[in-house]
Amino acid sequence: GASSGMAMAHWEIQGWMILLLGWVFVPFYSRSMVLTMPEFLERRYNKESRTILSVISLVSYVLTKVAVTVYAGGLVFQQVFGIDELWGIDFFWISAIGLVLITALYTVLGGMKSVLYTSVLQTPILLIGSLLIVVLGLRAVGGWDEVLAICGATSVNGYGDTMVNLIRNNNDPDFPWLGALVGSAIIGFWYWCTDQYIVQRVLSGRNQKESRRGAIFGAYLKLLPV
């Protein structure tokens, strides 16, 4: 978003589909008596489909979510503590590997409950941090009007669109409005309604009522303008 403008928000706006997960898919998954999406595919098709989804999910998680999180965490620890090396080893690697080991330890010992408790503790930190970034960022650039002035004067294509345009010309090379609208909806449906990372958290609810409440609250937080 910082380099491409508001058009990237199409993918974030699709967070409302968490509501579909809670109201449409949770009852379906519950009746299927499954705890994971690979397990659902096995019951619906065969073991091979379960294996394929498991491998694809693990590889994609490692290359996207896990890799970025570990890198960012190691970098933060290195900057916060101001240590370049420890025992002759780059402190970044010590921090990164340490985070992986600690996370693996409490996940294996505590299971899904420990993961959920960690998420609950992280939520206010993320919200407060996001709010601080917004406030400090706006103060640094001179306020919201200045942001609009700068972004509104930054052209992103040859069709008159600027960084503030959520809907761009359909000939835009990166975010044509039709492609962005349809593409983000398809990806949003897959991620929020069928991805293991999201679905397992909802299925961890005590019952359908609790799962739906969690989905509604999650959708509200996702769409907060912070």
Rank of each mutant, 00 (worst) to 15 (best):
M6L: 11
A9N: 09
V26H: 01
P27C: 09
Y29R: 04
S30D: 13
M33E: 13
E42N: 02
Y45N: 03
Y45P: 03
I52L: 13
L58D: 00
V59F: 15
F77W: 13
L86N: 02
W87T: 01
G88T: 07
D90R: 07
D90P: 04
F92Y: 15
A96C: 07
L99C: 13
L101E: 04
I102N: 00
T103G: 12
T118C: 07
T118Y: 03
V135F: 11
L138T: 00
L138M: 08
R139K: 09
G142W: 11
W144F: 11
E146F: 04
E146A: 09
E146H: 06
E146Q: 08
V147N: 07
G152W: 11
T154K: 08
T154A: 14
V156W: 05
D161E: 09
M163R: 04
V164G: 06
R168E: 08
D172K: 09
W177P: 10
L181I: 05
V182G: 09
A185I: 07
A185S: 05
F189S: 10
Y191R: 01
W192C: 09
Y197K: 01
V199W: 09
S204P: 06
S204M: 03
Q208Y: 01
R213L: 07
G214K: 02
G214E: 10
A215S: 15
F217M: 08
G218V: 00
G218A: 05
Y220A: 12
L221V: 15
K222F: 14
L223C: 02
L223A: 07
L224F: 09
